[in-house]
Design a protein around this nucleic acid. Structure first.
Lengths: 139, 139
DNA sequence: GTAGGATCTCTAGCCACTAGAGGTTCAAGG
DNA sequence: CCTTGAACCTCTAGTGGCTAGAGATCCTAC
């Protein structure tokens, strides 16, 4: 049986975050000692590792919940889990596209600014003040 | 003189967001009518457009504050503004890199899952449960 | 004069945590 | 057995950047 600190060390999830996950219903309320401290078994260690990894991959708490609900019913079609992962992939791709447009615009803006003069005629400030100076739409 | 609704329409910044910016000190408290309603001049319109555009480019409120503080002092070197923009650019690039790692991993995971079988032996769930199955580090 | 859309303030909620206060419990050493 | 102090407990509040809603007031057009 693991204390919450041990569990934290083994999963890389911080102690308050574990308590938060419990509160959110992402993990079940664990056993307690006589003195009211949490004690976790190996199943909870597994589950928390799953959560940690999915969070690292950018899944929302909600999506993780859905995935773990699926896990409880192993006869259901695999396609359901795949759909969730694909939605996440699309989400990530969308964010990348958006960020790349920003990257381009910021590159352009900073490259046009020599950094020599004074702010009076700084291209950075001018570009920010006027969207018309932009190449892309970024929204 | 513009009402807050007019200002909102002309800048694309929502009414509550304008009030929020005022509260945060990003824009000054504007004049008021006898009946306590806000009335904005052209300077505020400009300023809000600047903010809106910078937000669209992903600058934090804090960074925007810094940029606008600079604007108030046009004799200062342009390099200061450029540095803020470059920091933002680096930030964006970092986020892109991180997201691209996730994209790769998610692609790999979803492609390995045929979507045919049952969850029992679903690669998506297996991959999420075990970081060891990953190619990249994503953290 | 009145209707009704726009505005006001204030509070609370979103996500996924993080920080801190103030009190209790556990495990190791003497 | 007793003490020490690290780890634990609960609870509340804060983060960023808004968004939503309640309930009251104002402004404008008819």
């Amino acid at each position: 049986m693991l204390s919450i600190g041990e569990l934290s060390r083994r999963t890389g999830v911080k102690v308050p975050t574990i308590r938060y996950y419990e509160q959110m219903g992402l993990i079940a309320a664990p056993e307690r000692t006589e003195g009211n401290q949490r004690r976790f078994g190996p199943a909870e260690l597994e589950r928390l590792r799953f959560i940690r990894h999915a969070r690292d991959l950018g899944f929302s708490i909600e999506a993780i919940s859905a995935l773990m609900d699926l896990q409880g019913d192993p006869e259901r079609p695999c396609a359901e889990a795949r759909a969730i992962a694909e939605a996440q992939l699309e989400e990530v791709r969308g964010r990348i596209r958006r960020l790349q447009a920003l990257e381009q615009e910021l590159e352009r803006i900073t490259h046009r600014c020599s950094g020599d003069g004074t702010l009076q005629d700084c291209y950075v400030l001018a570009a920010l003040a006027d969207h018309g100076l932009c190449d892309t739409e970024h929204r």
